[in-house]
Amino acid sequence: MSIASPRERAKAERRDALLSAAAKLFAERGFERVSLDDLGAAVGVSGPAVYRHFAGKQAVLAALLVDASAGLLDGGRAVIAATVPDDPVTSILDARRALAALVAFHVDFAVENPDVIRVQSADLESLAEADRRTVRTLQRQYVELWVDALSTLHPDSPRPLLRTRAHAAFGLMNSTPHSARAAARETRALLAAMATSALSAPV
């Protein structure tokens, strides 16, 4: 296992800082109204210095949204693997455990990353076509993790309806950027309870 040098660690930290600043600025102003100079200034560097980390503003947006979608997919897979060791999900109990773990995982993401959710909602179409396809592919794969668990819990429901159910739950959990600020613990509990009810309710 290689150990990152101080210079490599510093570069990675600066990249993360730029992405964090981009999420905040894009969420507040919209992608088109933020310049590279704005991004650089937010982390204490010049606009041209941003090019040391990204090819341009479009690449910043791509990294932000692709990283988020890939992180959700990888995290969702890890959650299921840890919750249901004998994957695939085959029993009602397995399905309930998997969905509870997925809900907790997604609620944590939503509460901790409201700016990313706002950028995804407002600026997905600003991505280059190839990056937009990548994001949508990752998101479809993430949704199917939920649908697989739901298909065990609701065996008589066709998969298109189960996808609708999953997307409805995402709408609840992703509402954090648009809701009144509350204590994080209370917000997590409320969103988890509402999403679980939506996913578990009989048709």
Score class of each variant (00 low, 15 high):
D131K: 00
A166V: 09
E144D: 15
L99R: 08
R136K: 11
L162K: 06
A183Q: 13
D115V: 00
F105Y: 10
D131A: 07
S151Q: 14
D115C: 06
N113D: 06
S175M: 04
Q139K: 10
A193N: 11
V116G: 02
V103G: 05
V111H: 03
R185D: 15
N174A: 11
R165C: 06
L190M: 13
P160I: 03
A122K: 10
A98M: 07
L190H: 10
L191M: 08
A184P: 10
T196E: 13
A195F: 05
T187Q: 14
T137Q: 12
P160G: 03
F109A: 01
V111C: 09
R133K: 10
A110H: 07
S175V: 05
A149V: 06
A182V: 10
L138A: 03
V143R: 09
L150P: 05
M194E: 13
L124H: 03
S121V: 13
A192G: 12
P158L: 02
S175H: 03
D115S: 12
P177M: 05
H106Y: 09
P160C: 04
P158Y: 04
T137E: 13
E112P: 02
E144A: 08
F105T: 02
A183C: 11
Q139N: 12
I117R: 03
S151E: 13
E144Y: 09
A184D: 15
E129T: 10
R185N: 11
P114S: 01
H167R: 14
L191E: 03
S126D: 13
A104P: 00
P177L: 08
H167E: 14
R140N: 11
P177F: 06
V103K: 04
H154P: 04
A101P: 06
A180L: 12
A104L: 05
A192D: 00
L161R: 13
F170V: 07
T196P: 00
T134G: 14
H178P: 00
S157Q: 15
Q120D: 11
R96C: 08
L102S: 01
V107L: 04
V116C: 05
A122V: 05
T137K: 10
H178F: 15
T152Q: 09
M173N: 05
R97Y: 04
F109C: 01
L99A: 09
R181N: 08
A101G: 06
A130C: 01
R140V: 12
H154K: 03
L172I: 15
A183L: 13
A195K: 05
A130I: 09
T164A: 15
H106L: 07
H167M: 15
T187A: 12
T137S: 13
D108E: 14
S157P: 00
P114T: 00
E125Q: 14
H154N: 04
R133N: 04
M194I: 10
D123A: 05
A169G: 08
D115H: 13
Y142R: 10
V107Q: 00
R159Y: 02
A184I: 09
A182I: 08
E125D: 15
H106K: 08
D115F: 01
